[in-house]
């Protein structure tokens, strides 16, 4: 474990809780893409199946349980508890357009042809593009509430920090995971446009408006 990865995980947990708190406190899923949350739930379920038989550390196990439960809780809040506030008209990104390519990529790039390794690769590729429905929704609605922007900033920062972690691990322990690194770079690039808007708009106290 290194500081970059720890900060990345903290940023990730922060993002998950910002979103849950926002939906729970405002009792509304307005502006939130339920489809992205479904994709994240699939990512965590596919990646953390090894939870039940490969113990790495208490931290690792606790975090996996947390991400799985938090993403399921978020999907439940959006599609069940606060279903009336879910903005389905603007959450229209076809998730099969990311599910199918991720699955194909998993069959091409994987570390072993075992079910769990295919699931792991699939989850890595899927996570890289899981935020697309949410970013798509922000461009369709033309804006995002501040709290949603903070959520996206924390979520984008998590994988950006992981890139620093991979650089660090490469030079200190020769660890290199090409699948995770490539997908992580793509994932972070997808946020760049948003990062720019966030820094130039939200941090100046203005609302995040995506220019129509």
């Amino acid at each position: 474990m290194n500081l970059f990865r720890l900060m990345g995980d903290v940023s990730h947990v922060l993002a998950v809780f910002i979103l849950l708190a926002k939906i729970w406190r405002t009792r509304s899923a307005a502006g939130i893409s339920g489809r992205s949350q479904i994709l994240f739930t699939i990512v965590y379920l596919a990646r953390y199946m090894d939870l039940f038989f490969s113990f790495i550390s208490l931290y690792n196990t606790v975090m996996k349980l947390l991400f799985i439960s938090a993403s399921c809780a978020t999907v439940y809040l959006i599609y069940f508890k606060f279903r009336a506030t879910y903005d389905g008209n603007h959450d229209t990104f076809r998730i099969e357009f990311v599910l199918v390519p991720s699955l194909l990529l998993a069959f091409i790039f994987h570390y072993s042809m075992s079910f769990f390794e295919l699931a792991w690769s699939f989850s890595i590729f899927l996570e890289a593009v899981a935020i697309l429905p949410q970013l798509f929704m922000v461009t369709k609605t033309g804006e995002a509430e501040n709290i949603t922007s903070h959520y996206l900033f924390a979520l984008g920062s998590y994988r950006a920090l992981y890139i620093l972690n991979w650089i660090y691990r490469y030079y200190t322990e020769g660890h290199f995971d090409p699948i995770a690194v490539c997908a992580g770079i793509v994932q972070t690039i997808l946020y760049c446009d948003f990062f720019y808007l966030y820094v130039t708009k939200v941090l100046q106290g203005r609302k995040l408006q995506v220019l129509p």
Binding site: R5, H12, Y111, E117, I179
Partner: peptide
């Protein structure tokens, strides 16, 4: 690809 099927990262 490199066969590091030991995933210690989240």
């Amino acid at each position: 690809l490199l066969r590091n099927t030991f995933h210690d990262e989240l």
